[in-house]
């Protein structure tokens, strides 16, 4: 099997939300479930640049019913949206599943819709890419890798929500600062000293907090330490 990543232009619900006056940093499809007929439940994580009300969001999505808007505990201006919409609002998801490709990530940011999916082989890749390209006008393959397993479909939201309850506010804050400043990039874009300065804490406190974060992540993955 092949895991593929490609980019297309935002369409449907993504492009409608991007048309809001409030700046949006990203929209991710966390999950989708069938409702009735051509309607589906859509679970989205949307990062705005500022706070936003459910009314503003609903006003932008005339044929979509906003079922719930929950502000995330972490990540300022991040909202979990639950909506019922026409499947055409996320046509790339429909095209992937109709063609029996497994969607893993569907994220809109920087005027692109970035998609990660699994296909059976090269022939399947061409079929899927051809169908999406004819529907969306263009498609740019970003990358590919060989995989033995289908992997987990969508559902990034579950991980994010699970993680958020397992870390303290201070740990989350320092983790986000380190991440946003490029501490986990290879090569590193920032030194520990710079993150400590930015967070107004000492180097040793930074180190301690990041290690606690790692420990908590490991506990979540592997269970309690033996």
């Amino acid at each position: 099997m092949l895991r593929i990543e490609f980019q297309i232009r935002p369409a449907g619900i993504s492009s409608k939300l991007f048309d809001l006056e409030e700046q949006i940093r990203s929209i991710e499809v966390d999950n989708a479930l069938p409702a009735t007929g051509e309607r589906i439940f859509l679970f989205l994580t949307v990062q705005f640049d500022d706070d936003i009300s459910e009314d503003v969001i609903a006003g932008q999505l005339p044929n979509t019913k906003v079922v719930d808007t929950t502000k995330a505990e972490v990540n300022q201006h991040t909202y979990y949206l639950s909506v019922v919409a026409d499947i055409s609002e996320v046509s790339v998801l429909a095209l992937l599943t109709k063609n029996e490709a497994i969607p893993h990530r569907i994220v809109s940011q920087n005027a692109h819709l970035n998609v990660v999916a699994t296909v059976r082989d090269w022939t399947h890749l061409k079929e899927v890419a051809g169908t999406i390209e004819s529907e969306h006008g263009s498609l740019e393959l970003v990358g590919t890798t060989q995989t033995e397993t289908i992997g987990f479909p969508l559902g990034g939201n579950k991980i994010k929500r699970n993680m958020s309850g397992k870390l303290s506010d201070k740990q989350l804050e320092v983790l986000e600062t380190a991440y946003q400043m490029g501490y986990f990039r290879v090569p590193q874009e920032v030194t520990a000293e710079e993150i400590a300065n930015e967070s107004d804490i000492s180097r040793s406190t930074l180190s301690e907090r990041l290690r606690r974060v790692e420990h908590n992540f490991c506990e979540l993955l592997f269970g309690p330490q033996r």
């Binding site: 051809g130 740019e140 970003v142």
Partner: peptide, 14 residues
């Protein structure tokens, strides 16, 4: 970790 695909590679693959 995916192999990055450039224009020429995409054109051949598709």
């Amino acid at each position: 970790g995916k192999a990055r695909i450039d224009d020429l590679t995409q054109s051949i693959v598709l």
